[in-house]
Design a protein around this nucleic acid. Sequence first.
DNA 1: CGCCATTATTGACGTTTCGTCATTTTCAGC
DNA 2: GCTGAAAATGACGAAACGTCAATAATGGCG
Lengths: 243, 243
Amino acid sequence: MNRSPKKQNEIEERETTILDVAARVFLSDGYHSLNMENIADEIGCSKGTVYGHFRNKEDILMELASRGVEKRAEMFSQAAAFAGRPRERMAVLWMSIELYVRAYPEYFASELILRTETLREKAAPERQEFMRGCENRCIQIVAGIVRDGVALRDLHLPDGMSDEELAFGVWSLTYGAHGLLQTGTPMKSMGVKNPFQSILYNANIMLDGVGWKPLSTELDYQSIQKQAAKTLFEDEVKLADRR
Amino acid sequence: MNRSPKKQNEIEERETTILDVAARVFLSDGYHSLNMENIADEIGCSKGTVYGHFRNKEDILMELASRGVEKRAEMFSQAAAFAGRPRERMAVLWMSIELYVRAYPEYFASELILRTETLREKAAPERQEFMRGCENRCIQIVAGIVRDGVALRDLHLPDGMSDEELAFGVWSLTYGAHGLLQTGTPMKSMGVKNPFQSILYNANIMLDGVGWKPLSTELDYQSIQKQAAKTLFEDEVKLADRR
DNA sequence: CGCCATTATTGACGTTTCGTCATTTTCAGC
DNA sequence: GCTGAAAATGACGAAACGTCAATAATGGCG
């Protein structure tokens, strides 16, 4: 006996429902409020059925995080394909991170909590593997833009520094900043009035630091970013504004 | 009847013991293996006694994190007091972060997991408050160095950017990088062969980006850092090497 | 249709951890 | 030794975990 397409579909749909419910609960009530039994109750099936889809809550979070990183990889690709010089493409990519974090906070929160390795390793190995792949893809896209910039002689890397290493720095800056923001750290009281703005400024500073032309003094990256947001990431802009 | 000094002492000692045990368990076996009952067993007292000291495991982690941030604030102070120009002091401060992360991984791991707000808020409010204070102190020290640099005209902040905003960027870069490293993300396979080195390079790039003199091309910050490590942070260097 | 074989679903169960609190123990001071 | 305050204990109920034998649903087939 085979699984009918109808049944197949039902199962896939349920998986989506589980993830939706989990995302909502996790975002609003946090890690400890997220549990398999509640999810089951809420979608009207039994605990065992939920366990049929995911081995535990970390596994659910890993799936959410994976979808997030996948989505981000997609946004990165679009940003990297922006018509313009490498540094402009990098600027657009930065902006895409902000949009990602604001449009999909449940994904980003999942990513963040899974930074803790002992939580991460509870998820199914395949899911861990998949996640790593997506993360890799993201950093490779960033490194690719750096490579293009170097090839066009728009920037020179310091001696002994690779494309990936600069990409690592760029990534650390934005990731760290958004991570710090995510938590209740009261940036504003610390003198950072507009954190998102601040991140973009700092990112520009960083690229000016390797002399990546056109420098931030020579080109208005902010308006390029605004423009690109509208054309490339209409959906995310809407989502981000709604949150 | 009053508490005798002897008893007082015993209680304080036990608090330390609890933290030691918790730090060890958390670092080696992770969040879920850390629980009040095991701690009690291991130090030979009852669960209730442990609960007398901390309201739950997040509270213990918060205390560990606080001690960490306190320690870091102390290291930052020393770095900031280094005899040299502001940018040299900043370079020393950076190195101190690396030493901190490597010498006290249990503290840093506690900090990281408490980035998740719903975990953080389970700790006692006083502890949360204390932690915030320490974090604030750290960023203020960084901002102070920026301020000195500006005052000496070693750098000019871009229009509309405050000391704290640059400090936020600097902090994000290093924090994000160390956070990414902490997890199993295989940086090496991504082309980042020496991550710690890489962080320092990127940090230099960032300060070059605001034209902070002397530029990294004009002064060998790495040897200043090495030198300072030996004189200012002897203990941490030893600890870091042992890990 | 009715039966079978297979797959999906269920929820009771044993286990673990949580956090509380009534009870017992300890001990300084008299 | 007695006493009363402070400290320590561990039994307890609640909650979540993850499993698995039993039950239900379903598609294929005569």
